[in-house]
Design a protein around this nucleic acid. Structure first.
Lengths: 331, 331
DNA sequence: GTGAAAGCGCTAACAA
DNA sequence: TTGTTAGCGCTTTCAC
């Protein structure tokens, strides 16, 4: 048990108010009493009680981070940046994983609200009008990334544009047969709603838009879990060299592995492109062509927006961070 | 702003105490008043104020997790497990990254203590007697993993044994020339002390012990940052097929990549073994032989110990979790 | 420049 | 079964 300001006050023969002024660099105190009090605080190893402070100031100096999980490299890198950015401002981050589960996500958010976090950075698995209403009812600044919910602040790359450009890049590499791979993300009882615009959806739309506005392409989509089986079959059946554009590097990796097992060589037999530029790609041969979204920039930007909201400033609802096509050896 | 128990009390014409009994399932209240109060709470969207509750109960229901970073897969997986295990018990986890920096680690711990976390799970970068004294002065249950500090509760695999067995496995695969790779981990002004027993040290000792107690081995160690250069040179200079045993998969991956660039084939030209069984290994060809430490088990166990300490139970100082040699294709 | 006092919202011990 | 009261430790306003 550490000493309290009350006890310090008694020891120094001053009031609690004066101790507060001394210990928190507040004005209206002579430097001599200030130093005297600080000396006593040091001597007795005074440790400020942030819970009490939070209660009385109405600020917890903590922010909540809600993610699907930390196993996904993208999320863990994001958390890393967020933790650092937060601490630079004296905030600590509660990190909670929802496992894409509806109930968990709700409970986590409720709990964070009960803990009176000053802001929340959310990667939502849930969608729909009710959910948005719920989020607003928390009366806590929220910034999302990953999936966009109308009316909630959002930071991400322009997925539509990035996907469009990716396909253009694939086309530029000579492919006329293109397959977009985008298996379902959702696992457990997540709400379905039409209101939602997920990253994956936007990427799909970007791809579609390229195909619809350009002639001469043979286009297919694989939206199932067993995309790897299907992809292998597609390569085997022949009919022109095909490029697989995956909505995430995770699928590109999976596909590359599978292709290798099946004796399909990339890019000799098929082209491959991913999305996100996960840092494990550095260890993979051949180097997978991908889109770099700079998790770092994204995390920083998200925190910047969140802090502005916490400070009560007005911020545009959607904020884009830059991306870049990263040519590798798989096209 | 959510309604408070005080306001609910007024609305229901009861005392704050009664509201507390109703809302927190405490005994000594008639079910009719309880339900009446609960109904009002629901109606007004009452949200418990965990900060006030913490202050009054002296428990914050939160635990601190201090790691080097979340970029390392091992740490992020560990955090994932910890977050989940914590939440199962109603605890939330503050996750803070120290970046292996002495100052940061100290500040983080001070701050966590100020936030009155109920327990800390720490991956210490600092060592030495003073540091241990400091940790104890926090008067908060602490469990370490990764590096062991004498006198502080610790959960990990038996690194000594695991390294010993790994070398035995390499030997069993026919190698008589073995090189142990263990570059320095520490980056920024971390204290040096002799008191410390890090995982890496223990692994080195285990290796050493095998070599010292068995005849007929040509043994070398690479402890520098430029181990990859040196390793390439060693393979090139010839003199019997050599196996590289890396103190972490991270180095094994780096080496494999480098070997590939240099036209050295594994295991044809040299053997390779890692440590930790990071899950990215699944995407790497050839499959790297490694030691599996089950991050999951380790995280669960660490939390189990931490919760026991929080509950005031006595727990043995060191707790080992199982490990397993995972034969791959690189030996 | 300093002190006194009233909170922040919840909990817990004791009375009634 | 319910109410009263005194905190938890810090902040802040207002008076001196």
């Amino acid at each position: 048990m550490s000493i309290t300001t009350k006890e310090i006050a008694k020891i120094c023969n001053v009031s609690r108010g004066t101790v507060d002024r001394a210990l928190n660099g507040r004005a209206g105190i002579s430097s001599v009493t200030r130093e005297r009090i600080q000396a006593v605080a040091r001597e007795y190893h005074y440790r400020p009680h942030l819970i009490a402070s939070s209660l009385s100031r109405g600020k917890s100096m903590s922010i909540g981070v809600v993610l699907f999980d930390l196993k996904n490299r993208y999320f863990s890198q994001l958390s890393n940046t967020i933790s650092l950015a937060a601490r630079e401002k004296g905030y600590f981050t509660y990190i909670a994983v929802s496992e894409k589960d509806y109930e968990s996500e709700m409970h986590i958010l409720q709990n964070l609200a009960s803990r009176r976090v000053d802001g929340i950075l959310l990667l939502p698995a849930i969608q729909g009008r009710d959910y948005i209403r719920f989020l607003k009812s928390l009366e806590i600044p929220i910034v999302t990334t990953g999936n966009h919910l109308p009316g909630i602040h959002h930071v991400s790359i322009n997925d539509f544009d990035a996907a469009f450009e990716s396909v253009a890049h694939i086309s530029h590499c000579g492919y006329r047969r293109i397959c977009f791979i985008c298996p379902p993300l959702r696992k457990k009882g997540a709400l379905k709603g039409k209101l939602n615009i997920t990253s994956q959806d936007l990427r799909a739309r970007g791809v579609r838009y390229f195909i619809d506005t350009n002639r001469g392409y043979q286009f297919e989509m694989l939206l199932q879990k067993d995309y790897a089986d299907k992809a292998v079959a597609m390569v085997r059946q022949g009919g022109g060299k095909i490029a697989f554009f995956c909505s995430s590097d995770v699928y590109a990796l999976e596909l590359l592995k599978r292709f290798r097992e099946e004796g399909i060589s990339v890019p000799r037999d098929a082209g491959l492109m991913g999305f996100d530029n996960l840092d494990i790609l550095a260890y993979i041969t051949p180097r997978i062509t991908t889109v770099s979204t700079s998790v770092e920039t994204q995390g920083r930007k998200a925190m910047e927006v969140l802090f502005k909201l916490i400070a009560g400033e007005t911020v545009p609802n959607v904020c884009y961070v830059p991306y870049e096509i990263c040519p590798g050896e798989t096209l």
